[in-house]
Structures are given as structure tokens and as C-alpha cells.
Design a protein around this nucleic acid. Structure first.
Lengths: 217, 217
DNA sequence: TGACCCTTGTGAAAAATTTCTCTAAATTAA
DNA sequence: TTAATTTAGAGAAATTTTTCACAAGGGTCA
């Protein structure tokens, strides 16, 4: 391949952002196939199951190396391992949860079951009644304790599950305490300094987009 | 403007999908500004708050018409009304919820508060203990009742909040009963016939993307 | 071995999307 | 009223992303 690898063996000129998002889709697909006992698959088969063009799949992988065998396809165990490593899923990620309401609870439960690799290590809220209680396996602290708590824990990922009005402040505190990546469930754009990664998971927005396409018929 | 309007007065050649997603972001921003009592804003100000390029903002709007005033900017009440209409938010949308577990409950609660315009009108599950109970304000039916129930209700939007293994079947039932748009929370790609709109809201995937960018430093 | 399928990886072409740049419109200040 | 300033809208350029098309690798079976 032509990608410029760095010393860590796996990085490159410029990988399109859409590629990264699709990588996650491929991973899901591969996990599903493997769970069904399938050992190998071609790009065409993976394309059919994900709805993504086969050439796109091959091109996406080509940014990171050569993982298939012409004539045969991809060995799924190997492919899963490769994509997992590309995505950094071989590392453990500690997560701070800000907002211990309904959504926060659902998330902590969901992550407990579904996400090996991601661990909520502390939760924060402003509601005095919640502080001192636990959510999943971890203690709920007052948000003002965040800097002190993360000085100990050194978590790099934050989840924002607070109302809109509290979201920017929550993010500022997370970033100030060393968090590098944030999953935002609040329905607003968070402003962060360059280098901090934010992903928005906004239900309102998704619904609105559905609404648009519904109208467009 | 140059857009080809159809008889309904608002449609056009081809609006990029990313534009639709940003429209929702602008709407959030405008709502926030209005809530703070701001009456007008320029594209530059909106750009600063959303992190989106000002030219992009103007271009996105230009697909739908001319909503600003040179020298002045945009009248926010008017802009909100326009974007809302473009997104189809002036219509009521009835929603079927499949999966009445933790996530389903959190969603129904969230939608009760946050979403005027979207109403969960029925919920479905396979767990016999849940059937007959209510979630939010609506009854939980057995999933096999879905066709019958929606023959009455005629909802066009479905929310899939079931485990991965049950997701495709849930979608097939939704589509068969007339649902046109689906919000999918299950961590897998759903296959639907052309014309059906699916939006994936996959926490696992979002986390994996964060993980990638975290590693990439 | 040789003919015949398949399927990958990739350069090049095509398409889509974003950003730039400039014109014209509206406001404010003098 | 005029000059200076601000800002929208839009054609064009630049960039990014997707799709195409094909050479080469690898397997199977006669």
C-alpha cells in the first residue's frame, strides 16, 4: 500500500472522516457474521449486509493496509482484530459521566452490558439528592468535585447527559480536567478548543432529519 | 434564487444530505439565541456558535430560499419558522416504539418533555410481563399486534430500541405496517427497501469513533 | 499443468461538497 | 445626501469523497 506509516506502524496521510464512521459499521457487521459462525466473507458480501458499496469498503480498508486475499475475501477473525486495533479498541477507556438523570442511568446500564473497553469510572450531577448514591457501579459526585476526582482517575473520555443549559459548563469542566474526547447528548453545539474531539448524539436532531425526509415525499 | 420549486412551493434539485443535518444544528442555535432574547444574527455569528463555516451556512439556506437581509443578517423568529417548515416540523408525527426496556423508557420520557411534534402513540415488546403495562402515556402491546394496532393509528415513524438480534425483524414489521422512517438504536445496519428512511443512533459506534480519534494523538 | 472463476487493491475518473470571492443590498454616521 | 461599513447570495474554484475499471493474485477442477 501507499500510506505513510508512522513509527507506531499505523497512521497515514489523511483518512476521510466518513471512512472512520464506516469502519465502525464494518466492525458491527463482522462481529455479527462471526457470531453466526461465518469464517470468511468477500467485500461484496459485507457490502450487501451494510448497504455500503463494495469498492468503498475496500478503499476504506486500503487506508490502513491490506487485509484481504484476492480470490478468497477476508478472514473475519483477522479482519475484526485489525479494525479493532485501528479503532483503538484494544485499549481500555475510562469514562466520566456528567448528568445522572434518566438518560445517564440508561447509558450507564447500557455501557455496563455492551461495552467492554469503555468503563464509566465516575458520575457527576448537581442534584444534592443524587450525590453520594451510586449509578451502576460508581459513585455520584457533585460536579464541582470533577477536577479533584479526575486528578485521581485521569479519565480521557466524557459523556455529557445534562440539560442544554448546563452542557457548555459541563464540557468546560471536563476539558479543564484533562478529558480529550466527549460524547454529547445535549441538544446544542459544544464549543471546545481545537484538538478536543466531540461527537454529538442528538435525538432531537435525528428526529428532525427524519421529519425532513418524511416531508420530502 | 435558482432552486426549482415544485407545486408545494418548497423543494429543489438536490439538497446535500449534510445540509439537512446542519439545518438541524442551525435550528438549535437559533432557538438558543431566541431563548436569550436575541432578535437578529449574522451568518458569522451563527457560524461562531455552531462551529460551521459562515459561507456554508448561507449556502445551506440558499437551497431553500433567501431568508436574510444584506447588511443586517437574519431575523431569528423568521429564520426559525423557515427552517422548522423546511424540516417538516410544522406537522405532527406519530411514533411507534418497539422495545420497552431501559432505553425505550428513557426515550419515551425524553420525547414526552422535549419533542413537541413527535408523539409516541404505541409501544411494543415481546416480554409478557411488560405487555398491558404503560410506558409514558401509552400501552405496551405484544409485537405481533403491531400490524393490527398500526392499521388503526397509521403512524409513519418507528423507533427501534431492541437488542441487535431482534432489530431486523422489528424493522420488517414496522415497514410492513406502513412506517416510512425509522430511528434505529440497535447496533447493526438495518436493511430496508428503497424509499424507507433509516437513521442510526448507535452509541457503540459513536464511542468507537471517539476511540479512534483518541488513539490518533 | 492450464483454463477459468473470483476477488482484492488501486490509480484514475466522476461526483459531491465545501470554501472562496465578488457583487449588490441595506444600514449607519457624517 | 454621500461615504463607509456590514452582510447576504451565488458563481466559480478548490477540495474531498465516492465510484469505476482493471491488473494481478489465488483458488478450483479437468
Amino acid at each position: 500500500m501507499k500510506t505513510a506509516t508512522d513509527s507506531s506502524g499505523e497512521r497515514l496521510l489523511k483518512v476521510p472522516q466518513p471512512t472512520i464512521e464506516r469502519l465502525s459499521t464494518y466492525l458491527q457487521c463482522v462481529r455479527g457474521l462471526r457470531a453466526d459462525g461465518v469464517l470468511t466473507a468477500s467485500s461484496t458480501e459485507i457490502a450487501a449486509r451494510t448497504g455500503i458499496n463494495a469498492a468503498q469498503f475496500r478503499k476504506d480498508l486500503s487506508y490502513f493496509g491490506e487485509f484481504g486475499t484476492p480470490g478468497l475475501g477476508y478472514e473475519l477473525a483477522e479482519l475484526e482484530a485489525h479494525i479493532s486495533r485501528i479503532m483503538g479498541l484494544d485499549a481500555r477507556h475510562d469514562v466520566l459521566l456528567v448528568g445522572a438523570g434518566n438518560l445517564g442511568s440508561a447509558l450507564s446500564q447500557y455501557m455496563g452490558f455492551e461495552h467492554r473497553g469503555f468503563h464509566i469510572v465516575a458520575a457527576f450531577d448537581v442534584d444534592m439528592e443524587k450525590i453520594g448514591q451510586t449509578i451502576g457501579a460508581c459513585l455520584i459526585h457533585h460536579i464541582d468535585e470533577l477536577p479533584k476526582v479526575n486528578a485521581q482517575l485521569n479519565a480521557q473520555v466524557g459523556v455529557v447527559a445534562v440539560p442544554r443549559a448546563a452542557a457548555q459548563e459541563a464540557v468546560d469542566k471536563l476539558v479543564a480536567s484533562g478529558v480529550q474526547a466527549i460524547l454529547n447528548f445535549a441538544p446544542m453545539s459544544l464549543l471546545v478548543r481545537p484538538g478536543i474531539v466531540v461527537r454529538n448524539v442528538d435525538l432531537t436532531s435525528q428526529m428532525e432529519v427524519l421529519s425532513y425526509y418524511l416531508r420530502a415525499k
